[in-house]
Structures are given as C-alpha cells and as structure tokens.
C-alpha cells in the first residue's frame, strides 16, 4: 500500500466504501464524482466528522484513511 507521502495512490472511505485516490485529490474532486456534477447543488460534505464548507472543497486535499461523507436531501421524515 502506498501513502500520500509516497505520491499515492492511497485509500479513503467515501460514503462507507473504500476507494483508491491519487495524491492531490481534493474534496471537490470526490464530490463531483459522487454527485455526478461539479456544482453539486444541495450537497454537503464532511471529512472525518467535520463539515467542509463548499468554499473549501477545492483546497482541502485528502489523506490516507480519510472518511468522507457526501450527503443530500431525500424524501424522508
């Protein structure tokens, strides 16, 4: 297994599933992939239990074993 320090790729956990990403991958990259569009309206992301504000998505880079949650509103309640 390689690490970000080695230059990647490394493993993160996105919405409960493991995923290999390259060094330099940002929250914005992952959100765009999961949500299917880069603007991802109505979507929010948390990194290791803390909300990452939308304005910081493109500057926050992922580290090994990071847990990322990408949520949106659905019917319920």
């Amino acid at each position: 297994m390689t690490t970000p320090e080695d230059g990647g790729p490394f493993v993160v956990i996105v919405n409960g599933e493991t995923k290999q990403v390259d060094t330099g991958t940002t929250v914005a990259d992952l959100v765009a992939e999961v949500a299917g569009s880069p603007d991802a309206r109505g979507v929010a992301a948390a990194l290791n239990g803390s909300v990452v504000p939308r304005a910081r998505w493109s500057v926050v880079q992922l580290g090994e074993d990071d847990r990322i949650e990408v949520l949106t509103a659905v019917q319920g309640g």
Binding site: N15, V70, L71, G76
Partner: peptide, 27 residues
C-alpha cells in the same frame, strides 16, 4: 416541508429539492 439527509445515491433520479423549489415551499 421536511426532508431527510442521506448519502448521495448516484443512481437517484429526480430531486425532492427541485420539487420544493418549484412549488415555492420552504425546506
């Protein structure tokens, strides 16, 4: 009108948010 928060489902079609916005109902 209330909505739940869940992990994004890439296969989901249509959005309850779009519906509420179109109907001008506060979320």
């Amino acid at each position: 009108t209330t909505v739940a928060m869940r992990r994004v489902d890439p296969a989901a079609r249509g959005s309850v948010l779009d519906l509420l916005r179109d109907l001008r109902i506060a979320v």
